[in-house]
C-alpha cells in the first residue's frame, strides 16, 4: 500500500504515458494521433516537475532565514520541453491542415489507399 500511495505521482505519470502512447499507435486519424502525442509528452512534464517538488518546499526565491526549496531546475527544463512540445504540435497541426488540402482526408489508412491507387495508376500507364 505504501508502495502504491507513496509513489502516486508515478502512477499518474505512467497512466498518462500509456494512455497517450496507446492513442498514438492505435489511431489512424492524424489529429487524434497528435492529441495522443501531446498527452504522452505532458506525462513526462508531470514526471519532471514532481521529481523536483519537495512537500512543503517553497519557490526558490531568496528569503531571510533557512527554508526548504523545491528544485527549480526541473521546472526550468520542462519549460523548455513545453516549448518544444508546442512547436511540435503546431508543426504537426500545420502538416495535418496541408495534408487535408492535398488528400481531402486526414485518415492515415485512407491516405495509404490513395497512395496505392496512385502507384497502381503509374504502373498501369507504362
Amino acid at each position: 500500500m505504501e508502495f502504491l500511495v507513496g509513489h502516486y505521482n508515478y502512477w499518474v505519470v505512467v497512466f498518462l504515458m500509456m494512455l497517450g502512447f496507446y492513442v498514438v499507435i492505435s489511431r489512424t486519424h492524424m489529429v487524434k494521433v497528435l492529441v495522443g502525442l501531446s498527452v504522452f509528452q505532458t506525462s513526462v512534464f508531470i514526471f519532471y516537475i514532481s521529481l523536483g517538488k519537495i512537500r512543503g518546499g517553497t519557490a526558490p526565491i531568496l528569503i531571510d532565514g533557512p527554508a526548504v526549496y523545491s528544485n527549480p531546475l526541473t521546472s526550468v527544463l520542462i519549460l523548455t520541453a513545453i516549448v518544444v512540445s508546442i512547436a511540435t504540435t503546431a508543426l504537426g497541426l500545420a502538416l495535418v491542415v496541408r495534408i487535408n488540402e492535398a488528400y481531402g482526408t486526414v485518415d492515415e489508412e485512407e491516405i495509404d489507399a490513395i497512395e496505392r491507387a496512385d502507384e497502381a495508376a503509374v504502373l498501369e500507364a507504362r
Binding site: V33, L34, L37, F40, Q41, V44, G92, L95, V96, E115
Partner: peptide
C-alpha cells in the same frame, strides 16, 4: 504530396523517440 504524410509520420515517430530520451 507524399512528402506531407512522410513528414507527419516522421514527426510522430521522432517526437516519441525524443520523449523517450527525455
Amino acid at each position: 504530396r507524399g512528402a506531407l504524410t512522410a513528414a507527419f509520420r516522421y514527426l510522430v515517430m521522432g517526437s516519441v523517440g525524443a520523449t523517450f530520451i527525455v
